[in-house]
């Protein structure tokens, strides 16, 4: 899921490639965005979002994840291989454990 965002966006970041990492100010701006997203997440606890809450939380989580991995862990500026490892590990875990939990659920419906 996260991989598409990864592949689609890095255009402007890659412009300053070759280990050209963001400046301090840019890092701080990213952190501010992360803080706002976290506030949005927490707001689901205080306000009623109804059926939108679950997808909203998952999307917010994914965005935060990709932002930290992409900027703070420098995935956007490093070789693609590192990102492949990270997202392969993630995808592998999601697939295997979803299957496992499905086996429990499918069984329960017998």
């Amino acid at each position: 899921m996260a991989d598409t965002t990864q592949a689609g966006a890095p255009a402007e970041a890659e412009g300053g490639a070759d280990g050209h990492h963001p400046t301090q100010q840019e890092y701080i701006r990213i952190a501010v965005v992360l803080a706002i997203l976290t506030a949005l997440e927490v707001s689901t606890y205080y306000f009623e979002f109804g059926r939108a809450a679950l997808p909203l939380l998952i999307v917010l989580m994914a965005i935060k994840f990709v932002m930290v991995a992409g900027f703070f862990m420098h995935l956007r500026f490093d070789t693609k291989l590192f990102g492949r490892f990270l997202y392969t590990g993630l995808a592998w875990a999601v697939v295997l454990y979803t299957l496992t939990l499905l086996v429990f659920v499918v069984d329960a419906n017998q």
């Binding site: 499905l102 086996v103 499918v106 069984d107 419906n109 017998q110």
Partner: peptide, 8 residues
């Protein structure tokens, strides 16, 4: 032979 359903 454990408790998993026919589909799995």
């Amino acid at each position: 032979t454990s408790a998993i359903g026919p589909v799995p």
